[in-house]
């Protein structure tokens, strides 16, 4: 009844020329307002701000061209943060994806208590990052932390894992892998359950080993998921800094300063908003380039059902 009435109204409106397009725009307006005011305008404003100086007190912002970018290239902490982020990406992404795939294949099989295992693997994802960071802060604490207590059993001396510039970043990497693998596992698990068990049976009849079947059938069929997870992992590697705030605050000696954490410090601790905008533009450019590259290069090798 209501559908019928709505149909009649729609027909009457389309008869009047310009009104239907206004009707459409009005429908789009709420979503468009939100998108523009919280996504597109801030992005544009950030790019514009990066070409101006930071306004201070009585001194308004003035156009400075690429001066901010020149300062950035001369900033050793920027290069340190960028390098840290590269190490962090290489350390976390392949490991967490491999672990996620392994766990998904494991809990996809027939085994007792697999519901419990799935839940256990997914728990780190549900926990807030701040809580996670506090748990790991205890694990890594010198002498009485879990890690040191275990290594002490083998006679290793106590170490300040988070206080040592040579180990701090790797501690952060471990926390991230632990946090992310369970999340990615869910995507792999969903994809695995889309694969008909008949395929495995057909392969078993031909004498294919489980590893051969995984290599030739399962893994290629999971490629769309892998691509999706990969893009997400890269974005997360540049986006997630909660645990840094709790665990190290970028220290010691900027050993764990990631790009976004550095932006946060510049912008909200030193209030150098123009320089923060400049760094943000660089971060956006890196993310965009990586995402486009992934889709362009990997898409051709992916089989979509």
């Amino acid at each position: 009844m209501t559908e019928l009435a709505a149909g009649t109204i729609a027909r009457r409106r389309t008869g009047r020329g310009f009104i239907p397009s206004i009707h459409g725009w009005l429908l789009l307006l709420p979503a468009a307002v939100l998108l523009v005011s919280f996504t597109h305008w801030p992005t544009a404003a950030t790019i514009i701000d990066s070409f101006f100086s930071t306004p201070k007190g009585a001194r308004p912002a003035v156009f400075v061209g690429v001066e901010n970018y020149e300062a950035m290239l001369d900033d050793p902490i920027f290069w340190r943060a960028l390098w840290n982020n590269v190490v962090y990406c290489i350390g976390t992404i392949p490991a967490s994806i491999a672990l996620a795939l392994l766990m998904a294949v494991f809990v996809n099989g027939r085994l007792a208590g697999r519901g419990f295992l799935r839940l256990a693997y997914f728990t780190p994802t549900v926990l807030p990052m701040i809580a996670v960071a506090n748990i790991w802060l205890f694990f890594f604490s010198p002498s009485y932390g879990l890690v040191d207590q275990v290594t002490a059993l083998f006679g290793a001396p106590a170490r300040n894992w988070l206080g040592d510039p040579s180990t701090a970043l790797w501690c952060i990497v471990v926390v991230t892998i632990w946090k992310e693998a369970g999340f990615f596992m869910i995507f792999y698990l969903a994809a695995l359950q889309q694969i008909s068990p008949r395929l495995a049976e057909a392969a078993a009849l031909e004498g294919a080993s489980r590893w051969y079947f995984f290599r030739r059938i399962t893994f290629p069929l999971l490629m769309p998921t892998t691509l999706f997870v990969l893009v997400n992992a890269v974005i997360n590697a540049f986006r997630l800094v909660d645990h840094i705030v709790v665990m190290t605050r970028g220290g010691p000696d900027n050993a764990t300063a990631l790009l976004l954490f550095y932006i946060y410090e510049i912008g909200f601790k030193f209030w150098d908003t123009s320089y923060a905008a400049t760094l943000t533009v660089v971060l956006l450019a890196i993310l965009a380039a990586v995402a486009i590259g992934q889709f362009l290069f990997l898409d051709r090798r992916v089989h979509y059902q």
Partner: peptide, 11 residues
């Protein structure tokens, strides 16, 4: 064996 769903490898 031939399966009802054919069980062909889609990729």
């Amino acid at each position: 064996m031939v399966f009802q769903s054919y069980a062909l490898f889609p990729h």
